[in-house]
Nucleic acid binder design. Structure first.
Lengths: 142, 142
DNA sequence: GCTTGACCTCAAGTCGACTTGAACTGGCAC
DNA sequence: GTGCCAGTTCAAGTCGACTTGAGGTCAAGC
């Protein structure tokens, strides 16, 4: 397969050209050359973009992800790092599950004020220490 | 109980004074007066801070949270909003669970390169569309 | 009455991941 | 050969939730 120009990569991957340039600047991607000014990418950039998306979805920073690629472009995963992130996700999942249950309860709880509902108060108490953990849950981004 | 000064609130709640001032500016909190320059807060500010922490943990923005308090300070929860957030959390939890399983697998997978592992490739494929959802997983904050 | 130290205000900085804007350039169509 | 358009660069802006810094003020202790 021929190299793809940046517009083609953007179209096929759904990743905006501005992001592709940004990723290249961050060392996450490399272009194989230019046609005029226009960047060209080897076809495997699409797989690379999937890997990056997966890394992001798993909660790694771009910097972490950049380190997962060897200079030759091969994947170089640190199994310890992956395990640690899995543990982290596990904790998060537990917290979010409790929060989800609390929200569902609050949505149907008949108590006149939520502060009078024992279930609500229990969750409130269990959240307090979690607040100190300085952990922010996922947010949809534009 | 007497009103608490800002330092006392910070000490008891674990929330930095700078954050308390910030929350007040955002309308999430209100001080009852001053002793000299120093802000005073009614004791129930502590419960309010727990509610805010809970809201944050559930993924609401400060603006959302501010709207959950009536002008008189009472809780005014929008059950629809809570349900919607619960559904959102549910989706997130499922995604994170898949990701966690993938990470655990990758951490022990014996395939020489992860790209050769079928499990890894399956997750890679399932992540791709998720990448378009523009959803960022939770990150520990300092 | 003067120093001190903790709080005050307000503007600006931070962090991560991008996006946007201004000014420029080069291949392609005509 | 020339004009257009989609690319290019680089700096700056955005978003949310705070934190930090500079300079000001006040209650309290000596």
């Amino acid at each position: 397969m021929r190299d793809l120009d940046i517009t083609e990569v953007a179209r096929r991957s759904g990743v905006p050209a501005s992001t592709l340039r940004f990723y290249e600047a961050r060392g996450l991607l490399s272009s194989t050359g230019r046609r005029g000014l226009r960047r060209l990418f080897a076809p495997d950039v699409l797989e690379r973009l999937s890997l990056i998306a997966m890394g992001r979805a798993a909660g790694f920073s771009l910097e972490d992800i950049a380190r997962m690629f060897a200079p030759d472009g091969r994947l170089r995963l640190d199994r310890k790092l992956l395990s640690a992130r899995a543990d982290e996700l596990d904790r998060t999942i537990r917290e979010l599950s409790a929060m989800r249950d609390g929200l569902r309860h609050a949505a149907v709880c008949p108590a006149p004020s939520h502060l009078e509902c024992p279930t609500f108060r229990r969750i409130l108490r269990s959240t307090a220490p979690a607040a100190r953990s300085k952990r922010t849950p996922p947010k949809p981004r534009r």
